[in-house]
């Protein structure tokens, strides 16, 4: 028992090492939440383009559709670490803000996965719903916004929750571009105390974050289900 306490003391208290963990946690949360927002925005846009392009074959829709397909293919086909290194070392090499680079990389990366999730969710909404909306004189965008998307959210949410969780954990590779995220902070402490305790602590923090996120998603899902029964 005193051994464990001693390890905790050396990991957290000595040299105020808990500050490292807090800083890492802060960076991880910033990257994950901003990237999630960007990912959802990009994903929604790409999904709507792809769904619209199925019925609307005007030349600009075809071009947009091609661009979106290319984006999804490239992003899903390459590792996120490689994307991160390319962003940092080449595309955004002039930008001296690693946190921003990480946010954009993870956001763009997540967008490709979110796009497919949302697209599938939209496709799963009965075609008659959109027809009913259009037959009342609602425009295509109104129908999408007021009728299709609210129903699609229910189909999308479980898969989207998985994506949020995956994204949160994926940010642990941010250390590759000299960001002190939660993982990197644990690793820093590990190299000083030469003991695995900080790594276990980091693992537990991730676990708690994911469990909290799952709980919130479940609450949200339950609220959306209110029109299903009663």
């Amino acid at each position: 028992m005193s051994y464990i306490l001693d390890q905790l003391y050396r990991t957290l208290i000595v040299d105020k090492r808990y500050m490292l963990l807090l800083e890492g946690l802060k960076n991880t949360l910033i990257i994950a939440s901003c990237a999630t927002a960007i990912g959802v925005a990009i994903g929604l846009l790409v999904a709507i383009v792809k769904v619209t392009a199925q019925n609307n074959r005007k030349w600009y829709m075809v071009v947009l559709d091609k661009i979106c397909s290319f984006y999804v293919t490239v992003i899903r086909g390459t590792p996120v670490v490689v994307q991160l290194l390319i962003m940092n070392g080449s595309i955004m090499a002039a930008v001296n803000a690693e946190l921003l680079v990480a946010i954009l990389t993870f956001g763009i990366n997540s967008g490709a996965y979110v796009a497919e999730i949302i697209r599938a969710g939209i496709m799963a909404v009965d075609k008659g719903q959109a027809e009913a909306g259009r037959s009342l004189g609602l425009t295509q965008s109104m129908t999408m916004k007021l009728i299709v998307l609210p129903q699609a959210v229910k189909n999308i949410l479980p898969a989207l929750g998985n994506e949020f969780i995956a994204l949160l954990k994926e940010t642990s590779v941010a250390g590759y571009i000299a960001i002190r995220d939660l993982t990197k902070a644990g690793d820093n402490i590990f190299s000083r105390v030469v003991n695995s305790t900080p790594l276990y602590i980091v693992a537990i923090i991730y676990l708690v974050l994911v469990m909290g996120l799952s709980y919130l998603l479940k609450l949200f899902e339950r609220r959306l289900a209110k029109s299903d029964h009663r």
């Binding site: 009965d126 719903q129 009913a132 037959s135 129903q151």
Partner: peptide, 21 residues
């Protein structure tokens, strides 16, 4: 088309009520 459809009501075989409303 949207203006036109406002003047033409349509009723479907499968009702197509909006389940979330």
């Amino acid at each position: 088309i949207n203006e036109l459809r406002q003047k033409m009501g349509m009723v479907f075989q499968h009702f197509n009520l909006f389940p979330h409303l």
